[in-house]
Each structure stands twice: as structure tokens, then as C-alpha cells.
Design a protein around this nucleic acid. Structure first.
Lengths: 261, 261
DNA sequence: CGGTATTTTGAGTATCGTCAAGGCCAGTGG
DNA sequence: CCACTGGCCTTGACGATACTCAAAATACCG
């Protein structure tokens, strides 16, 4: 993949998706002010309510964005993958805590310096704006997934979002004759928080979908999507958009897998 | 209210919240390119999938942003109130249809001209960016409300969001000794779509909350919030933020209501 | 090999969706 | 002025689904 051929002078992954469009000079300025941070699973990157002093860009790993409810339960409002930007621009109300779901490496930009750079570099401001638009879309997609009343249907929607939106994040393990094999990057408990339910119901939903023939569970973290159409039907997605792309992806992978089967 | 004292030369409400911070000259340019549009209840402002050729700013009324699912059901992902901006900037994937929920007046800006102006006016770009941040927060607030499994709890969260976020939209009718009287601006059916349930369940939730003493139903569209703390507890909001502001509001209104009462 | 965390299964209860019917209100036409 | 009609809200009964609590099975790790 061409994204690996970055100059050694770039300590951070500033060529990643979110900053793909910014000018080389802006990218250089970003690289100059970047510090690398690492977090182990479960570590807290940013506390709820506290305003972070840096803007982050994920290099690898997964962060969960969550809110602690009054009764102590936690609800996950979104996952952040490699390339995603997080941290409040303009000290916006950062009402969510951010925790590492896996081993995570992030680029941290000092917020004040980032904002200063943004004012002088319209291309960066544009990139941030586009990133926001993208996040807004993802949030609304989530809302649609959550609008399903049956847990199994929400889970189906989760699978499709995972496969279609996060294809480039190492979650697609390949695809055999049975279908697309993907990796579930978070625990059942986190998945339950994400889908607004309990781990037991998540487990039942997994096995329900397996009994229906829509998926196959290889192990708790690896499953095969056997019938994308059926999953899309359940998820209520109008499908035309998401699924066609997935179909193409499967076809492409079948014709000539880059890694050789 | 002071917002009415706008120069007659401004055909549109460009002094509204979203554009509050832009420079007078930018505002003037906006006013120059604005066309007023009106929509009756149920009228479609923007079809799903079609890219609108204008950016809109709501002057009065309420729009609902919704998506039609594969099985024909419609789910509302958000409401737009006076001052909100809608329409895709940069032809982003506008995957939702926008319909008028009430009689609506909007300012329409030609999208090409708006984007051109945005490039030359950083203050406008900043305003758009802030508007996006705000929308993202609202979307995530919604996700938290929807994360409640009991419909009554979701409804409680809806009340709190309505009261705290949209105080300036004429939805707060006043407050008597019993509590805060608010107006529900949409039908039970729309509310059901918004909360991810059915009208019957919404109705039951209303009367459940009334039986519990948390609210009082004056008529289907007007209710009194009698116990904000209990509602916050149900909604699972950590409350400190939202509720304290509401409490102050109630206090202020009690000490010296502007309209005398 | 043993200990721990995660996942899965089971039984009972609460809640919601569905279908159907009744009540309330506004607008219409006699 | 009053009956009629249609839309919206409400109520009731029943089946489906998910939550709770509990325990067993599996995977993970040293």
C-alpha cells in the first residue's frame, strides 16, 4: 500500500485519511508539532468533562467514545479508528470520555498550536470541516442502526457498518467461498454498550443470526458474513449504497486478492 | 426580544444563532444572496439522495430530518429548529430527506455562491464549523437518549433536551408553581419515529410519567414538567450539566417572569 | 495445569409491538 | 345549529422480545 512510503521525517501518520487533502507544507507543520502517545487497553485518554489540551489523530488501534450515565452504566456513542481525529476543537463541550479499547498509538497535537495553524492554513480548516461532516454522517448512521428494535437487526447493521466503513482498518480478514470474514475488534460487553443492550442479548443475537444462516461464528472474535443481502434486510438499510459497495469489494477480493488468497 | 430589531434591509434572519458571530460585511453578503422559501406541514424540502442546490437556514418552524428504511418505515434522526443550518456543504453525502414538520420559513442560499463566499470569508467558515460541532453534539445527545431501553425514559430524555436545548424556540410556554410548561411541537407519530417506537407506546409513556407524578398532561401538545430531577434520573443524564441550567432557568423565571405571569 | 475473565445458556419477569376498538377534536356540509 | 367525517390520541388484550439473575461452558494466561 502506498501509504507506507512516508518520509522518515514524519514521526506521525499525518498522511492518514483525515489529512489526506492538506498541502505538503501544512502537513510538515503538523508533523513538526506532533507527539506520539501510546495507551494500553482500558486506559483513559480523555476524561469526561475535562477539556483535553491536545487534538489527537489515531495512528493504530481503536478508541471508544463513551459517556457514563447517572446510574454508573456506560454507553458507547462511537468507535474511533486509525485516521480519525478526536479532541474538541475550540474547546467545544467535550462531554464524552475517551478510552482505549485496544493497544493504541495516537499523534497528539498541542491544541493551541493546532488551532493557530488552522487559522493560517485554510486547507487544514477544510480538512477538519470535512472530518466533522464525516463524523456527523457516521453518528446518524449509528442512530439508524440503533433504531431497530430487534437486537439481531442492530447487530446486522453493526456488521455492515464495520465492513463498509472500516474496511481499511484490518478488520476484514479475507473472504472465502462462504463469505466475508471479519474481525470483531471489541468485547461482547463493549458491543452491548454500543448497541444499547446487555452482553447476554448480544450473544443470543450472534447465535440467532448463525442459526438463520446469515453468519458463521468461527470464534467469538471472528465471524463470516454469509449473506450480506439478508443482513442488510434485517438492518433496514436501503442497502443500495452500502451493500453494493460491499458486493464489489467481495468480487474484487475474489478475482484477485492482493495478498494472494 | 431584541432579535426582532433587525434592519429592514435584511430580508432573512441572518442574525440568527448560527450566524451570530460572522462579521457584518459577511452577513450583508449573505443577506444579498438569500431567497425566502416557505413550506407547509408535510412538504418535502429535500429528497433523500438528491443533492440540494441550496443551503438553508431556518427562520421559523421545524424541519425533520429522516430516512426511509427498506421496509418503508421512516425514522427521524433529528429535528431542525429556527437558526439551524441544513443542506450539504461540499456535496457531502446527503442521505436524509428533509420535510417540514410545521409551517416553515427558510432562507435559501445558492450553494455554489455560499461556498464561494465561505472560501473568502473565514469567519463564515468558522461559523459553519461551529454549527457542525453543535450538530454533532446534538446527534450524540440523541444517541444517549435512545440508549435507554424503557420508552418512558427516552421520553424523559426528550423532554430535557427540548427544554434545555431549544429554550429559545418558543417551546417553553412559561412556568407555574407546578413546574415548567412546554409545548410538544410534533405529533405522537413523529415522536414515535424519533424515539424509535410506535405511537401507542409513546402515548403509554406519557401517561405512565403522569401517573408517576413527573409530568402533567394539559393537552396532547402541552405538558408540565413537574420533577426535573426525576426526569433526569430516568433519562440517565448525569444531569449536572443539563439540569442545573434548567433549574436556574426555572428559578429566574420564578423570580421575575418577563411577561409578568 | 490451575485461575480468571469472557462467553454462553437457561428460566422467569417485565416491557414493547401488534391488532383492534373507542374517544376526542376540528372542519365540513346540511 | 347540529350531524357527519376524518385524523389523531388513547386504551385494551395478546404474543413476541429483551432484561434480570443465576450458573455452566469456554477461552485466555501464567
Amino acid at each position: 500500500m502506498k501509504s507506507r512510503t512516508q518520509p522518515a521525517g514524519f514521526p506521525c501518520h499525518v498522511a492518514s485519511s483525515a489529512f489526506a487533502e492538506v498541502l505538503p507544507e501544512t502537513r510538515h507543520a503538523l508533523a513538526g508539532m506532533c507527539r506520539e502517545k501510546r495507551y494500553g487497553p482500558g486506559r483513559i485518554v480523555s476524561h469526561e468533562g475535562e477539556s483535553t489540551d491536545f487534538i489527537g489523530c489515531i495512528r493504530s488501534g481503536i478508541l471508544r467514545m463513551q459517556k457514563t450515565l447517572a446510574d454508573g452504566r456506560q454507553h458507547i456513542v462511537g468507535l474511533l479508528f486509525a485516521g480519525d481525529i478526536f479532541g474538541r476543537i475550540f474547546d467545544g463541550p467535550g462531554e464524552f470520555s475517551i478510552e482505549a479499547a485496544t493497544e493504541v498509538v495516537v499523534c497528539a497535537f498541542d491544541r493551541a498550536r493546532f488551532e493557530t495553524l488552522m487559522q493560517s492554513a485554510p486547507d487544514l480548516e477544510r480538512a477538519v470541516l470535512l472530518n466533522l461532516l464525516n463524523e456527523l454522517d457516521r453518528a446518524r448512521d449509528w442512530m439508524l442502526v440503533l433504531s431497530n428494535q430487534k437486537i439481531a437487526d442492530r447487530l446486522a447493521g453493526f456488521f455492515l457498518l464495520l465492513a463498509s466503513r472500516h474496511a481499511g482498518n484490518g478488520l476484514i480478514l479475507g473472504n472465502g467461498p462462504e463469505g466475508l470474514e471479519i474481525r470483531i475488534p471489541i468485547s461482547r460487553a463493549d458491543l452491548a454498550h454500543l448497541l444499547g443492550t446487555r452482553p447476554e442479548s448480544v450473544s443470543r443475537a450472534f447465535h440467532f443470526l448463525e442459526d438463520e444462516g446469515d453468519i458463521r461464528i468461527l470464534d467469538p472474535a471472528r465471524i463470516v458474513l454469509r449473506d450480506l443481502g439478508a443482513l442488510a434486510m434485517r438492518a433496514g438499510e436501503d442497502g443500495i449504497g452500502e451493500i453494493s459497495r460491499l458486493g464489489e469489494m467481495v468480487e474484487a477480493a475474489r478475482q484477485g486478492p492482493p495478498d494472494g488468497s
